[in-house]
């Protein structure tokens, strides 16, 4: 435990966003994670993105399961709603929250164990339903909270602190997403907020489920030589496949846009995703092309980062279900539940 909680004293020149809030207003409780945990940096990046996007804290729902990563939902946006569910069971809870109040910005925080082991089934169905939410996997290759067992994202050959190697094939959430119809897939690194913050802002604006796989080193159990999820290894193998700017609705796209390989993707709310740098022939809206690029990068041993795939066209949970525009929480009870007489007329004939 830290000796003190982060004092509330602030930099006197702190900037305010459109709501008059400073970035400190988007912080949460004091982290009790190990010093230097990548998860804390992810928290800081989310905090930054929420502040920059002028998000009203009371319109945020933070959802998580179990794990060191899951704990971090408590460390940002102290003014938001939150639900800390069972291990791997955050997706159904998030689906319920989003179904009940479509105006909420749902932010799910999960780990590689939470999402790719115990919760894998739930995650796949969350993707299929295209629930509108930001889904962050803080990926450290281990079960941090239970002291460092390999998780399902550990690479073949990666070793534990004591030197035993992993022999099981890893699950890559990007490939998983591409195979079950994900509409927004990105990978980042906790040590690179310059890349991470715009990705989070784009994810918050996305119409549907946005999965962000963030390599987030576990300093205590997986930051040694032999680890493929350490700070050093990630830095040495990180290849930024795409460089993306998130341009909010009101802002103009400025700067020099190179002719080659640039794609600008309009988002449903009027914002624009501008891919400033992508490899030749890379189209972030072409599922097949993306799979090919990721496959060959994997063959080269690269850790590919950036906003990798985006589909702004597909319908989300509410559109698929043809629900009312009004959040269900605001629909009068009598209307939500018309009573047994009316129900008798619908079902069980």
């Amino acid at each position: 435990m830290p000796s003190i909680v982060k004092p509330l004293v602030t930099h006197p020149g702190l900037e305010r966003n459109a709501l008059g809030l400073t970035i400190r207003d988007y912080e949460g409780g004091m982290s009790t994670l190990c010093a230097g945990c990548g998860h804390d940096s992810v928290t800081a990046a989310i905090t930054h993105a929420l502040w920059e996007s002028d998000t009203p804290p009371h319109m945020i729902a933070k959802l998580s399961g179990i794990g060191c990563s899951a704990k971090t939902a408590a460390y940002f946006a102290r003014g938001a709603h939150g639900f800390n569910g069972c291990h791997g069971r955050m997706p159904p809870i998030a689906t319920g929250a989003s179904a009940a109040n479509r105006d909420l910005l749902c932010i799910g925080i999960s780990g590689d164990g939470d999402s790719l082991s115990i919760g894998l089934g739930h995650l796949a169905h969350l993707v299929r339903r295209n629930v509108r939410m930001v889904y962050v996997i803080e990926n450290n290759g281990v079960y941090g909270l239970t002291k460092g067992q390999f998780s399902a994202s550990a690479d073949v050959g990666s070793t534990t602190k004591r030197g035993e190697a992993n022999h099981l094939q890893p699950i890559d959430p990007m490939f998983l997403g591409l195979s079950v119809g994900a509409t927004f897939l990105a990978r980042g690194f906790s040590g690179d907020k310059r890349q991470l913050v715009p990705i989070f802002r784009a994810a918050m604006a996305h119409r549907g489920l946005a999965i962000i796989d963030v390599i987030s080193p576990c300093v205590t159990f997986n930051d040694h030589e032999g680890s493929t999820k350490s700070y050093l290894f990630t830095r040495q193998h990180d290849v930024q496949m795409t460089v993306t700017d998130f341009v909010p609705p009101a802002e103009e796209i400025t700067g020099i846009i190179p002719d080659q390989g640039v794609v600008s993707i309009p988002m449903h709310d009027g914002a624009t995703l501008r891919f400033r740098s992508v490899p030749d022939g890379y189209d972030p809206t072409d599922r097949l092309a993306v799979i090919e690029h990721l496959m060959s990068a994997k063959g080269r041993g690269e850790i590919v980062t950036g906003l990798l795939y985006v589909d702004e066209q597909s319908s989300d949970l509410h559109e698929l279900g043809n629900t009312t525009d009004k959040p269900l929480t605001q629909v009068p009870y009598e209307k939500l539940c018309p009573g047994s007489a009316a129900l008798a007329g619908v079902g069980f004939r």
């Binding site: 602030t10 702190l14 940096s41 800081a44 040590g191």
Partner: peptide, 14 residues
Amino acid sequence: CIECDACIDICPVQ
């Protein structure tokens, strides 16, 4: 320093 950013994120006065 391993550039984990922890110090930067925690500093209350930037």
